[in-house]
Design a protein around this nucleic acid. Sequence first.
DNA 1: TTCAAATTTTGACTGTTAGTCATATATGGA
DNA 2: TCCATATATGACTAACAGTCAAAATTTGAA
Lengths: 217, 217
Amino acid sequence: MEKKLTRKEREKLARREAIIDAALEIVSEKGFEGLTMDELAERAEVGKGTLYLYFKSKTSIYLALCERGSALLNQQMAKVITKNLPGIKIVEELGQTYLEFIQRQPVYFTAFSYYENIIDQDVIEESEIAAQCEENAEQAMTYIVRALQIGMQDNSIKDEFDPKVLGLIIWGASKGVMHIAFLKHEKHRMKVLDEVDVSLKSLINGFIKLIGSGMRK
Amino acid sequence: MEKKLTRKEREKLARREAIIDAALEIVSEKGFEGLTMDELAERAEVGKGTLYLYFKSKTSIYLALCERGSALLNQQMAKVITKNLPGIKIVEELGQTYLEFIQRQPVYFTAFSYYENIIDQDVIEESEIAAQCEENAEQAMTYIVRALQIGMQDNSIKDEFDPKVLGLIIWGASKGVMHIAFLKHEKHRMKVLDEVDVSLKSLINGFIKLIGSGMRK
DNA sequence: TTCAAATTTTGACTGTTAGTCATATATGGA
DNA sequence: TCCATATATGACTAACAGTCAAAATTTGAA
């Protein structure tokens, strides 16, 4: 009873995933503003009312995208954290992982940005999904902090910072640099991340180098 | 004819400013999502149609907030850049200036974030106001780059980075750290920036220290 | 197999809000 | 004063998120 889901439960879950898939498709094509519940219903091949059986609101759907994205990213980061490397290297590889993830699936970057810009307290506090997003974000932070601690232990990273504060700074700064890189190239004919790759990568690499030499012992 | 505006022109300009004032008021109280054109018309004491004589769309009004904010911030930054200090100090003071500006008028931080998240090419490219925002942002970047160049000249900053790339990195990273600090405290009972001040300031200061030791010679 | 209760799905409907436009009002020169 | 031009208005339209009574489907007891 604890592990096997009934057929019904599995079907419900699958339907939910199908809706998220459709939403990702639309957002990839038309951006966040471009998603309407009517079109989503059509693409997911359900009635509009059905959407509201699976998600409380349009915002909840956006949150679900964010949740899926952050779970995927965490999977990738988890692989890095177990490697047997100096702490500073792990931090750098985490950065690389993030970059590659975003390049491969830029739609999730948009989803994360959306999430971070919701100020609406009520939505965040009352939503199951938002809670999961928070948890995923916390997990990601834990990976960074862990890597920093390893680095302080093995002397590859200065120990004059509190690792948690440093983690927060690195997290925020990475997001910001990524965001700028993203914009810079979306604005002038948005091929987004393919040909642009060089410049984005060099920006991020410059950032890693800067931060790296700031915290390296 | 080139400097003196007619009474009519002055009145038109004043009306425009009054609309922006009203918009700032509403956004401060209810956030960006909370602004409706009907309420704005009421607060600005004009008919709804009048709003559209002064602004092409709701988005244009948001852009106008951003434009005003960035102009104000640039004024503050301009003061710093003329000081006779080592380059690295100027960079740090620019950071402080930004922090203080946001603390004093957090609504503009929201406006900047809004601006940075508009992906809608068409709006940005066809808008007079957006062009002005771009120009202001570029001006701000110029201040940072200038400070970095001064620092490289006076040997207070490593010259292994391209100052423009470094400027972009610093700009993006600052925004990101600021954003995180902002959220961190808006989420858990949003007194935003008053009592929270300590933690926000310590975060930003940690960031300045980190970046500083990364680029200091 | 049959059928009625329970569950799930549906799309027509409602309310809200951005944006429009025909009409009304104000201005200023003759 | 009168007219032409410029400015302002709010009732109206269109688009969209979200609701809910009715329809369709599933279940399981007889």
